[in-house]
Computed example of a mutant assay.
Amino acid sequence: MDKTTQQALSKVPQVTLLFWIIKVAATTLGETGGDAVTMSMNLGYLVGSIIFGVVFLVAVAAQIRATRFHPFLYWLTVIATTTVGTTLADFADRSLGIGYPGGASLLFALLMISLFVWYRTLGSVAVDSVHSPAAEMFYWVTIMFSQTLGTALGDWAADTAGLGYGGGAILFGSLLALVALAYYCTRISRTLLFWAAFILTRPLGAVVGDFLDKPLNAGGLALSRYSASAALLAFIVACILLFRQQAAPALKRESIRVERKPETIDQ
């Protein structure tokens, strides 16, 4: 076997329990951090989206240029996607006046289009196929749409649906538990379950983030958005430092050999 048959390097982490713990913390940080800029600093949703959009583009460019998996860079990029997702969802839902149903429907359509184009272009949307610049670009754009959709779903459930922050956390936590049960008890596509869980962790983070920083009369704990964001960031850094993460195993790129069977002559 020549050197062209080799395992490509992956720059995304293995999907383990630690991955999901950090993911939920990162999505919660995205909610508190995004609200800190748009609300506490009174910059508004549009300006906040522009600021975090620039951070997102810089982080993705750095992630694509990297030659191997860097935990801090990867999770910085995830946090960038979730903060820009928070401000974009709020801008779509509130500033554009289309409401939570309209915003969620639009974002769901964008997410499905991203996954469809990714699959049609590269043939797979699995995490273990993310080992080329093109796949990474699709991966991060899809994540950004999923984070934005998750924000809209979380706000919709907590506010419009009347579930409150506690009810929203129970709802999305229960849905995540069902996804985990399906993973261990069924043969449903692991790629489908991954993206379902990835989307659902965002509204869970959204309602938990709102629960931390919203006023007491609105059902929250009225914590400072700055202190809540700092605590969440410290927790994420501690997880990265204390627990080692490895890169996800990548699919093998193997040359295809076509062997021709010798022809037989019937006599």
Rank of each mutant, 00 (worst) to 15 (best):
T5I: 03
A8T: 13
V12F: 05
V12M: 01
I21Q: 10
V24Y: 04
V24I: 13
V24M: 06
A26P: 02
G30K: 00
T32Q: 03
T32W: 02
T38A: 15
M41S: 15
M41E: 14
N42T: 07
G48V: 11
S49N: 10
V55Y: 08
V60S: 00
T67V: 14
R68H: 13
P71G: 00
T77G: 04
T81I: 05
A89S: 15
A89M: 10
S95D: 15
S95V: 12
A104I: 05
L106G: 08
L107Y: 10
F108I: 09
L110M: 11
L111M: 02
M112W: 04
I113R: 08
V117P: 06
D128V: 07
S129V: 06
H131L: 03
S132Y: 04
P133M: 14
A134K: 05
A135E: 10
Y139Q: 11
W140N: 03
V141D: 05
S146L: 00
T148M: 11
L153G: 04
L153R: 00
A157K: 02
A158C: 06
A158R: 04
D159L: 13
L163M: 08
G166M: 07
I170T: 01
I170G: 01
I170P: 01
L171C: 00
S174M: 13
S174C: 13
V179P: 01
R190P: 12
A196R: 04
L204Y: 09
L204A: 08
G205F: 00
A206V: 15
F211R: 07
D213N: 14
L216V: 15
L223R: 06
L223P: 02
S229A: 09
A230C: 12
L233A: 07
A234C: 09
V237D: 05
A238M: 09
I240S: 06
Q246I: 09
A248W: 07
A250R: 04
A250N: 01
R253G: 13
E254R: 12
R257I: 13
V258A: 12
E259G: 00
K261F: 14
I265R: 06
Q267Y: 14
